[in-house]
């Protein structure tokens, strides 16, 4: 007799674009509930930390570019 087992549910891993989107909204401090719930299962903490650091560097660089443009 074959035992039928339920296939184990594995949430898919989020792609870089989705992580970037989540981090962008987190910088603003806003996130839709549905999108947040999706993030919670698909995005891993390491991804958030790496994307957060990259986001912070991009943020600083863009501010530097802006002030250079203004003062040049």
């Amino acid at each position: 007799m074959r035992v039928v087992t339920e296939p184990e549910y594995k949430p898919r891993k989020a792609g870089p674009l989705e992580v970037a989107k989540a981090v962008f909204w987190s910088f603003l401090g806003i996130r839709k509930r549905a999108a947040h719930e999706k993030d919670a299962v698909t995005i891993k903490p390491v991804q958030v930390i790496v994307a957060g650091i990259i986001g912070a560097v991009i943020f600083v660089l863009s501010l530097i570019m802006l002030v250079r443009y203004i003062t040049s």
Binding site: S26, F27, L28, G29, I30, R31, H36, A56, V60
Partner: peptide
């Protein structure tokens, strides 16, 4: 209201506090 945005906003404030 906006539990997750509160978490995000707190992290964001923490990151910005360094610059």
């Amino acid at each position: 209201f906006g539990y997750s945005s509160m978490v995000y906003a707190t992290s964001s404030i923490a990151i910005l506090s360094f610059i």
